[in-house]
Every structure is written in structure tokens, then in C-alpha cells.
């Protein structure tokens, strides 16, 4: 054995502890869940696990409730992320150009992000309460009939979107503002000297230069958005009926109301596949857009 190969073997020994940690902490639960998703597991009443093949997956994919939850989640995510991006970028631009009192706005714009989503949902529930809420007080005060925000399917989804936008726009503001402040000032001064109008400056310079950041911000928000559960749980409980039931909320009900662990695991994996596909499609589209500028 040559001298050079001895340390090569030793190095694997040093890698093993870290690998074990990763294995137990990250991969084991994932693999365990994957195994469970192929079994019939019921906690109440306790039944020994039984291998059922793809039955759980068939059940999930054949369930109208699953596709309903998928559709609801997709609507909420895409509409709210689009609004978050547009509003957030606009606010970031305003803050970047140092409107009077920008320091105050900067703090107050960020506040919603620091609140727990459950708290935000509770506040929203009070605000839109048909009897006690200030919104309905205003509406009836103006002489209109009471609006049942949380029991009308379309309105309930709108409120959920509104809450999502309210809470997560600050995240977009924060990152886009950082991006704006990182852009080289001279480029914009050059554009000013060259008499490029403000809107063209945004369209041709600011936006393309921030495109990579925009892509990342929207991506993070999409992934996060698909996991929305607490807001819907507190605000509407998925109702009326299952009109505002998101994928994670559905999984929660399946797993912790019905204790149907096998199917919940299958649901989670379908969910993982859906988010991965959606994410990949998005990244491909974003890259195509970015290539036009690169």
C-alpha cells in the first residue's frame, strides 16, 4: 500500500459521523414516510401496518377533495404571490427613492412579516367577522347589507389571499429593496444623463438587472405559499365545505382527524411531486425570460 492512499481511506471515517447525522435527521423521516405511504396504517383503532402497494396513491388521486384542494391552493398561491410581487416591488421602489418618512414606512411595512400567521389569521377573522368586525360595521354603516366574507366560497378565498398578501408582501419589499440598493448607482446616473424617461429606465434597466433576484423571490414565495395551512385553518377551517381547503390542511385533516397515516403520507408525496413539478416549470420559464436579457 502506498503512502498516498492511506489518508484517503481515513477521510471516509471522518465523513461518516456527518453522513450519519444527515441520514437520521433528514433522510430517515423521508424514507420512513415513503414506506408508510405504501402501507395501510391506522392509529385509531390501532391496526398493524399492512403493505397495500399503490392503493393509497390511487385513493388520493381518485379523490375529488384532493383535486379541489390542489385547485384552491394553486389559486391562492398564484394570485397572492403575483400581488405580493407587484405590490412589494412597487413599495421597494418607493422606499428606494427615499420618499419623506421612508424610515418610518420601512419599519411599519416589515411588521406583518414578524407576526405569527396564526395571530394574523385570528386578527383577520375578527376584522371580517359578520357581526363584530369593523369591515362589516363600515359596510352596514354605509347602508349596504352585511357581507359574509368567510362563509361565501369566493369571498373566503379572497380574504385568504388578502391575508397572505398582507403578511408576505414585506418579505418581497425587504429583498427587492436590498436588490435595488445593491444596483450600481452610476448606471442610473448614466441613464439620467442620457435622458432616458423614468418608465423606460425601469423597464429596460432596473427590471432586467433585478430579474435574477425577482426569480428567486417569487420562487421562495411560491414554495412557501403551497404550504399554507395555519391561515386557512384558523380563518375558515377549510370551509365553507371544502371551498378553502388547502393541500396541507387536507393532509392535516386526513392525518390528525382521521388518523389515516398511510394515505396522508401518500398525499404528502403527491404534494411533493406537484410542488417539484410546479417549481421546475417555473424555473424553466424564468430562465427563458432571463435569457432574453442575458
Amino acid at each position: 500500500m502506498s503512502v498516498g492512499t492511506a489518508p484517503d481511506r481515513v477521510k471516509y471515517l471522518f465523513i461518516w459521523p456527518a453522513f450519519l447525522v444527515v441520514l437520521t435527521v433528514s433522510l430517515f423521516p423521508l424514507i420512513y414516510a415513503l414506506i408508510v405511504s405504501f402501507q395501510a396504517v391506522r392509529l385509531v383503532p390501532p391496526v398493524p401496518p399492512r403493505f397495500v402497494g399503490l392503493d393509497n396513491y390511487a385513493q388520493v388521486l381518485g379523490s375529488g377533495r384532493f383535486w379541489g384542494a390542489m385547485w384552491t391552493t394553486t389559486i391562492i398561491v398564484f394570485v397572492s404571490v403575483a400581488l405580493q410581487y407587484v405590490i412589494g416591488f412597487t413599495l421597494a421602489l418607493v422606499l428606494h427613492h427615499n420618499v419623506p418618512g421612508a424610515a418610518l414606512y420601512r419599519v411599519s411595512f416589515l411588521l406583518p412579516m414578524f407576526l405569527a400567521p396564526v395571530g394574523v389569521a385570528l386578527i383577520a377573522r375578527m376584522i371580517f367577522h359578520p357581526v363584530l368586525g369593523p369591515v362589516n360595521a363600515l359596510i352596514t354603516g354605509l347602508g349596504f347589507p352585511t357581507v359574509t366574507f368567510l362563509t361565501d366560497p369566493a369571498l373566503a378565498i379572497s380574504v385568504l389571499i388578502l391575508v397572505e398578501v398582507w403578511q408576505w408582501t414585506p418579505f418581497v419589499v425587504l429583498l427587492m429593496l436590498a436588490g435595488l440598493q445593491g444596483l450600481p448607482a452610476e448606471v442610473f446616473e448614466a441613464a439620467r444623463v442620457d435622458n432616458i424617461p423614468v418608465l423606460r429606465r425601469f423597464r429596460d434597466i432596473t427590471f432586467p438587472m433585478l430579474l435574477p433576484l425577482s426569480t428567486a423571490v417569487v420562487f421562495i414565495r411560491l414554495i412557501e405559499g403551497y404550504k399554507v395551512v395555519d391561515t386557512a385553518f384558523v380563518l375558515t377551517g377549510g370551509g365553507p365545505g371544502t371551498a378553502t381547503e388547502t393541500l396541507t390542511l387536507y393532509a392535516y385533516y386526513e392525518g390528525f382527524r382521521k388518523f389515516n397515516i398511510g394515505m396522508t403520507s401518500a398525499l404528502s408525496f403527491v404534494f411533493l411531486v406537484v410542488v417539484t413539478i410546479a417549481g421546475t416549470l417555473y424555473l424553466v420559464a424564468a430562465q427563458r425570460l432571463a435569457r432574453r436579457y442575458r
Partner: peptide, 15 residues
Amino acid sequence: RPGERNCAMVFQNYA
């Protein structure tokens, strides 16, 4: 405004 002065500027960092 800078754009209406009919100047052209070259910056240190090229811009």
C-alpha cells in the same frame, strides 16, 4: 434635468 442638458458623461466604473 440632467437629460436635457445635452451632456454625455463617462464614469469611472464605466456604468
